[in-house]
């Protein structure tokens, strides 16, 4: 059997992202991570949201579903419960899963399904040509915030931590090797992994450029940070400004939502027979 490489996911479509878009780095890292983990076109499932990120599905040959705006995570959880042997990854954006689908992120984290959610986080709605996203930093001028964003931005890391996600990490779209490594760790983690990926929007954001990020980003693990403490993770996750940490903030082992389901101890639901073996027993409670 031919081994799986980044090229295994090639389709006849070419990316339509703007040249220089951070999505390219995320896409490349994902293909590398999947190939390194031995997950080929038939071996995993990607659920995409709506936004620039979701367009990836047309140039990504792997089983997938492209849901409604904000609703990727519920679809992902449904498929995971139907077939808990299947690796499931959710490709989503800051508007998709922190705006429209914020509630689903919170509740997915609480349940801890073995799903990795990769958030394309660029502070802006690209597909609708440049409005502020839920992560827009105060003062950020966009088409919907002409005098600068005024709200407190949503922090996907602290949100994930509070809600109960068992793997919290942040990567950078301009660092493909680093991001590939983070993705592999997130996908390999047994439980709900939130991977926030900072990415420049080269078209609608002239402030948060590759250079802007590169000046500020630093690797947590190089500072000897150990991601095993929720309080410390909070402190690190709240850092934003001249220094912005990337890497793994928090990791814990907790039973997954599949492991706590009594019906999922063996074969996936999809392979179980449709018939009820003890009809008489089932009906006896109604006599």
């Amino acid at each position: 059997m031919p081994s799986i490489t980044a090229d295994s996911f090639k389709t006849s479509f070419l990316p339509t992202w703007c040249p220089g878009c951070g999505d390219f780095g995320i896409w490349m890292s994902l293909k590398n991570a999947l190939a390194n983990l031995g997950i080929g076109s038939d071996d995993g499932f990607l659920v995409y949201g709506i936004g620039c990120h979701g367009n990836m599905q047309d140039w990504m040959k792997i089983y997938g579903a492209r849901g409604l705006h904000g609703r990727a995570l519920p679809v992902a959880q449904g498929i995971k419960l139907a077939n808990h042997k299947l690796p499931v990854i959710c490709i989503t954006g800051d508007g998709d899963c922190l705006g429209e689908g914020g509630n689903h992120l919170i509740h997915a984290a609480k349940r801890n399904p073995d799903i990795t959610v990769i958030i394309h986080d660029n502070q802006v709605y690209g597909l609708t040509t440049g409005q502020a996203s839920p992560t827009a930093q105060p003062g950020f001028k966009t088409k919907s915030t002409p005098t600068g964003a005024t709200d407190t931005p949503i922090n996907p890391l602290t949100l994930g931590l509070t809600a109960g996600a068992t793997f919290i990490a942040r990567g950078f779209a301009g660092d493909t090797p680093g991001l590939t490594d983070l993705m592999q760790r997130a996908i390999s983690h047994k439980g709900f992994s939130v991977l926030d990926v900072l990415q420049p929007c080269v078209t609608f954001d002239k402030v948060h450029t590759y250079g802007w990020y590169r000046q500020r980003l630093y690797q947590l693990d190089k500072e000897g940070y150990v991601p095993d403490n929720k309080i410390k993770a909070f402190e690190k996750a709240l850092e934003w400004g001249d220094k912005i940490p990337i890497g793994i903030f928090y990791k814990e082992d907790r039973p997954t939502s599949e492991e706590v389901e009594p019906a999922l101890t063996g074969a996936p639901l999809k392979d179980l027979p449709l018939t009820v073996s003890n009809i008489d027993g089932l009906l006896s409670e109604f006599i």
């Binding site: 519920p74 449904g78 995971k80 139907a82 999809k270």
Partner: peptide, 13 residues
């Protein structure tokens, strides 16, 4: 979430 989960499960088989 309910209907989207059910749709996901149905896709799953």
């Amino acid at each position: 979430a309910g209907i989207n989960m059910a749709i996901g499960a149905s896709i799953g088989g």
